[in-house]
């Protein structure tokens, strides 16, 4: 999918039909593989300070050479930078921005969606129009327009994506809070004189949080796609930053001389986004089935 599809992707219901035993709780093989991929990307992101110098070392005279030349495992790009080093260094930007976007969007969702679902009234109406407006528009296009008009850059892109991602969180939290609100334990808390915000954040929040966290994980996958798409168009991270999207933009013109400039970060983006999605789907399915059992 292009990007920013999180808001309307239907969740496939759990229809495997297997009885819920302890064995069924163990993650399936694909999810374990996804967790391994993610662990490797996280390690690469943590090693960032160590590979950064190597990644930024230019050798313009060398230019783009293919696999294996002068000890470059995947060759070099047009500036003579090592493709392997750049791809390793790009892991941080691939995870950092999207995690920021997911957390920011989650925060808006919890505060706005939670308050709207709990209080109702005019605030709920406004929150509803806000989500309607953003979900009715082609988000990818809006991200390109807004980030482009504002001149791009890391923080601008992050804020734009937070705003564009937030409607799905607002809707999710609002619905979950409205589901909890009429339950006896909330009524008991209210009757015993506990203040509204306290009921919302101390009593309702713990029951809503697991679903919100699973959703945030899925948002990371879509934010990764969105962020790298904007970087590919020259709007996300600034030029010169090791970033998978930027590498692909450079790699397009180098498909003839060194295709690895494109292939390595391209496969990394696809693998990482898929891995985050698989883990997120699995987590969400598990939480939902637990909620049903309770």
């Amino acid at each position: 999918m292009s990007m920013l599809t999180r808001a309307r992707t239907p969740r496939t219901p759990d229809t495997s039909g297997t009885p819920r035993t302890v064995a069924a709780r163990r993650p399936p093989l694909t999810v374990i593989a996804a967790m391994v991929v993610l662990a490797l990307v996280v390690i690469a992101a943590l090693l960032h300070p160590l590979v950064m110098d190597w990644a930024l070392t230019q050798n313009v005279a060398l230019g783009p050479v293919g696999t294996g030349v002068e000890g470059h495992v995947f060759g070099t790009d047009q500036l003579g930078r090592d493709v392997l080093a750049l791809s390793l260094a790009g892991a941080r930007s691939a995870l950092g921005g999207p995690i920021l976007v997911a957390l920011g969007s989650m925060l808006i969702g919890v505060v706005l969606g939670g308050t709207a679902g709990y209080r109702g009234g005019s605030l709920d109406f406004l929150a509803g129009r806000y989500t309607d407006l953003l979900l009715a528009l082609p988000a990818t296009l809006l991200a390109i327009v807004v980030a482009g008009v504002l001149g791009g850059g890391y923080w601008v892109t992050a804020v734009v994506l937070i705003v564009l991602f937030s409607p799905s969180d607002v809707r999710l939290v609002r619905a979950a809070v409205m589901e909890q609100r009429p339950l006896p334990y909330i009524e008991a808390a209210r009757v015993s004189g506990i203040s509204g915000p306290r009921v919302l954040f101390r009593h309702i929040a713990p029951n809503v949080l697991p679903i919100v966290v699973a959703n945030a994980l899925l948002n990371v996958a879509f934010a990764l796609v969105a962020f790298s798409s904007l970087s590919y168009l020259g709007l996300g991270v600034p030029p010169g930053t090791p970033d998978w999207g930027r590498q692909l933009a450079d790699g397009r013109d180098l498909l003839g001389s060194n295709p690895m400039v494109t292939i390595v970060p391209g496969l990394l983006i696809i693998a990482t986004a898929t891995a985050v999605n698989l883990v997120g789907d699995w987590l969400e399915g598990r939480l939902n089935s637990e909620a049903v059992e309770r």
Binding site: M1, S2, M3, T5, T9, A221, V225, S228, S229, Y232, G245, L248, G251, R252, L255, T262, I263, G266, L267, I269, I270, A273, T274, V276, N277, L278, D281
Partner: peptide, 16 residues
């Protein structure tokens, strides 16, 4: 899941 996760430009460049 793979198709939903893969950004269009990455798929496009690999196909290209």
């Amino acid at each position: 899941v793979l198709g939903v996760s893969a950004p269009a430009f990455a798929v496009g460049l690999l196909l290209l």
